[in-house]
């Protein structure tokens, strides 16, 4: 595809084999990943075939059976791991709903679960210097160049009402018909004003495994029709946990003297996401669960995955940029 990113640098045996196969240098071999980084990058590569593909790679490989087998294998492990990890957050919320409580307050409370680690937004607000802030932005770019894209895969699979509510949120994310207001475009303007590379997947070679896993989870939830409720739960939790942190980030970026374009990106989100969180929880999730009450457990699971994956990313990114907490990490 035109404008697709180049294949990333492999980080282990499996990603090496995948990069070779995609580059036409060998057949697909579904090896065991030899590290968390190898595993996360391999799955990121396989998912990227469904997003924009890679420069010089045959677009038909998106549906190559051998690659799909490999993807299914990695996804199976990823889903099982995050089902286990999220149980302690999901169970109490589910019990409240089963006891007759409304979804909205339960979901908002779930999004305030103390996940027990540092916050990137608070670090940027109070402590980071400009270099550390830029290091954070490089890691964040893996997500922000796509933003809501993976959740758009759910659209044809939704009932009419839920679909209309998702589109109302998405219209705003995608600029309400004005490409210059598209959030991913505003991101690009911001990072380029900071002197960083605004290109799609520009920093994938530097991305921490936790950062890759965070976006892999979104691709997994979005691609599988079976996981539609979790994809929407994830999207809603992302909106719920965005407005207040965006304000903290905006303050921090102002403090270190980051360019206005970059601060604007976060200013836009502190107001936009205060609207989106209400629309997402009350209307979108409300209509999804009303339409099919069996979706409730996965709605909550998707929300929990969003929170816990952000916590994993935050812990890794804060250590990576040398934030104070690093000394506490063994």
């Amino acid at each position: 595809m035109r404008g697709a990113p180049p294949l990333p640098t492999p980080r282990g045996e499996l990603s090496e084999a995948l990069v070779a196969a995609l580059g036409g240098r060998g057949v697909t071999r579904c090896l065991e990943p030899d590290s968390a980084a190898d595993e996360a990058l391999s799955l990121w590569i396989l998912y990227e075939l469904h997003h924009r593909g890679f420069e010089g790679v045959d677009d038909a490989l998106e549906w190559d059976p051998a690659l799909l087998v490999c993807r299914a294998h990695l996804e199976h492990d990823l889903e099982a791991r995050w089902r286990r990890r999220a149980r302690a957050v999901v169970t109490p919320a589910q019990q409240r709903c089963e006891a007759g409580e409304e979804l909205a307050p339960v979901f908002f409370d779930l999004c305030e679960t103390d996940t027990g680690g540092g916050s990137i937004a608070s670090f940027l607000q109070r402590e980071a210097d400009l270099d550390q802030a830029l290091a954070v932005l490089r890691q964040r770019s893996i997500y922000h160049v796509r933003e809501q894209d993976p959740s758009m895969w759910t659209l044809p699979r939704l009932d009419d009402e839920t679909k209309a509510h998702l589109v109302a949120i998405a219209a705003d994310e995608y600029g309400n018909g004005d490409p210059t207001r598209l959030h991913a475009r505003m991101w690009r303007r911001g990072v380029e004003a900071c002197g960083l590379d605004g290109g799609y997947a520009a920093y994938v070679d530097q991305a921490l495994p936790e950062v890759l896993e965070q976006v892999n989870l979104m691709s997994m939830l979005g691609l599988h029709r079976r996981l539609v409720p979790a994809a929407l739960g994830h999207l809603a939790a992302f909106e719920v946990t965005s407005a207040v942190p965006s304000r903290r980030v905006a303050r921090g970026l102002e403090r270190v003297g980051a360019p206005e374009e970059m601060v604007d990106y976060y200013r836009e989100h502190m107001v936009a996401d205060a609207v989106h969180e209400q629309l997402a929880v009350r209307r979108m999730l409300g209509s999804l669960v009303a339409h099919d009450p069996d979706t409730l457990p996965d709605v909550l699971w998707g929300g929990a995955v969003c929170l816990l994956a952000e916590q994993a990313t935050a812990t890794a990114v804060l250590a990576h940029v040398g934030a104070e907490q690093e000394s506490a990490v063994a």
């Binding site: 908002f108 305030e112 965005s242 407005a243 207040v244 304000r247 502190m270 107001v271 996401d273 205060a274 609207v275 969180e277």
Partner: peptide, 11 residues
């Protein structure tokens, strides 16, 4: 902090 618009501060 963005009156009159909500910025999530009610939480």
């Amino acid at each position: 902090g963005s009156a009159p618009w909500c910025d999530g501060s009610h939480k």
